[in-house]
């Protein structure tokens, strides 16, 4: 199995799906001639022409709306946001149109489209370019939300997203584009709503997605040195959410720490914690714990940026807390 980067895996998924289905097309800022702001669309303009790789003006609301309309008449648009921070100016199209069209048209219009791009902090891109948008979009019925953490999942989930007949919000991580891993060639589909155990363990369940999976796995290694056996679970798709796998894991371990790079208030971890206590209260030895970014807009200073984001030491401390070892 070839080892490729997360960026290349996304590129492969797009290429394969565009080859497979000529109704699939890519649209966004700098996706064509510039080969993508993060080079995810490298080579696609040459292969598929300007008809299917469409450079747009800086007008997210406009090209998102064009995408919704294209989806209504039978195309499968993939809309790239240079950053999900810019989806804020397009959010009316995503929530009020893409998410609701199927239901409001009594099933006449499917919206088989993907909104994709990086979300979450990178390195020193400032408060306006460092936000995490899982909670914004998971909140909305009619949307599916996906956050791959590995190159293989990036490919498999993007192919599934493009083939899905519903609007999918597909959030990548700028910090993962260069990460590498084994990725199956050709037809590789990862289903939505199916979590993956990244590491099996008995004493505490750590739940994380996207970039945070790496950080949590690092914490698990550190915990192992302390004699603590942690299980790491990546839900991969956040809506639908594979709560059953989480419940099963927590029933086994009795403790849970949810790690997310977003803010604490109304974060997705709060919903997961709620569902866990409802489903497996009698198995919990401690309240579900969360590790999140600090409750501030992201600072620009590098040292402060590191402090704000969840770090290995924060996760280790949270695990000790739920194990009553602090």
């Amino acid at each position: 199995m070839p080892i490729i980067s997360y960026r290349e895996a996304l590129n492969a998924a797009l290429r394969e799906e565009m080859q497979r289905d000529e109704t699939v097309f890519l649209m966004g800022e700098e996706v064509g001639h510039y080969q993508g702001a993060y080079k995810v669309s490298q080579g696609l303009l040459e292969e598929f022409s300007e008809r299917r790789v469409v450079d747009t003006p800086i007008a997210e609301l406009g090209f998102s709306g064009v995408g919704v309309g294209a989806a209504m008449v039978g195309l499968r648009p993939v809309i790239e946001f240079m950053s999900f921070n810019f989806s804020l100016v397009a959010i009316d199209q995503i929530i009020n149109h893409a998410a609701k069209m199927y239901q409001m048209s009594a099933g006449q219009f499917h919206i088989p489209m993907v909104f994709r791009g990086p979300s979450g902090p990178a390195v020193q891109v400032g408060a306006q370019h460092s936000q995490s948008f899982e909670s914004y979009y998971c909140y909305v019925p009619g949307l599916k939300v996906v956050c791959p953490s590995t190159p293989a999942d990036a490919k498999g989930l993007l192919k599934t997203a493009i083939r899905d007949d519903n609007p999918v919000v597909f959030m990548e991580s700028e910090l993962l584009y260069n990460s590498t891993g084994e990725v199956p060639e050709g037809e590789h589909l990862v289903p939505f709503g199916k979590a993956e155990i990244k590491r099996a363990g008995k004493e505490v369940t750590l739940i994380a997605w996207s970039k945070m999976v790496e950080v949590v796995l690092e914490a698990a290694t550190e915990l192992e040195a302390l004699g603590i056996d942690a299980e790491v679970l990546d839900p991969r798709s956040l809506r639908p959410l594979d709560i059953d796998s989480m419940v099963e894991s927590v029933k086994k371990t009795g403790r849970c720490v949810i790690v997310e790079v977003g803010w604490s208030m109304c974060g997705l971890g709060a919903e997961i914690a709620f569902q866990l206590q409802r489903e497996c209260l009698d198995y919990l030895d401690a309240p579900v714990e969360r590790v999140t970014s600090d409750d501030v807009p992201m600072p620009y200073a590098k040292n402060l940026e590191q402090e704000v984001m969840p770090q290995v030491k924060d996760i280790v401390a949270a695990v000790k807390h739920v194990l009553y070892l602090d």
Binding site: K202, E203, K252, T253, G254, D282, Y283
Partner: peptide, 12 residues
């Protein structure tokens, strides 16, 4: 831990 939870469920 690995065996405990399912047993507990059975005797509840």
């Amino acid at each position: 831990a690995a065996q405990t939870a399912p047993q507990a469920a059975a005797v509840l």
